[in-house]
């Protein structure tokens, strides 16, 4: 019975070819065109746009990275220069202040020395004057004593 169904020519069977075949073919062809419009084209567009976007973004990012690296090395060099300049300024300032200090010190020392010398000279002269006066007074006194003693005799 089954074999009759399998190869039965007139009605039914597994190998029963009829208008299903061409109509199915037409249907699949139509489906191909519909899917092409609804699926393959739009999805392809989105996917390819994204691929482009990723590629260009990568390229841009690489470019930016290179730019950043260049700027970084630039800035590093500038920083080094600035450090050296700052060091130099500090050294200069230290030397300047040192010099100023020494000058002021020398000036002050000289002034002190000179005023001390002046004072000493003045003291000396006054002592001299006082001694002379003392000598004169002593001489006078001596003379007076001598006179009195002689007069009393």
């Amino acid at each position: 019975m089954t074999s009759l169904f399998l190869f039965g020519a007139s009605e039914g069977g597994l190998f029963d070819f009829d208008a299903t075949l061409p109509l199915m073919a037409v249907q699949v062809v139509l489906l191909t065109f519909i899917l092409n419009t609804l699926f393959f084209k739009p999805v392809g567009k989105v996917v390819e746009e994204r691929e482009d976007y990723v590629t260009t973004s990568r390229a841009e990012a690489k470019q930016k990275l290179a730019e950043v690296e260049r700027l970084e090395s630039d800035l590093k060099a500038q920083l080094k220069e600035a450090r050296l300049a700052a060091q130099k300024v500090i050294n200069d300032a230290e030397q300047d202040s040192d010099k100023l200090y020494r000058e002021a010190m020398a000036l002050a020392t000289a002034e002190a020395n000179s005023s001390r010398e002046k004072a000493r000279l003045e003291i000396d002269s006054q002592r001299e004057a006082a001694l002379n006066q003392l000598k004169v007074d002593a001489d006078k006194l001596g003379d007076l004593i001598v006179e009195r003693l002689l007069a009393a005799k």
């Binding site: 089954t2 208008a19 299903t20 109509l23």
Partner: peptide, 20 residues
């Protein structure tokens, strides 16, 4: 139900309805 079909008649054409 091997090899049995639901036939649709369209004009002179016969097609397998269950497949469609």
């Amino acid at each position: 139900e091997v090899g049995k079909h639901l036939y649709w008649q369209i004009g002179d054409l016969r097609i397998h309805g269950q497949v469609f």
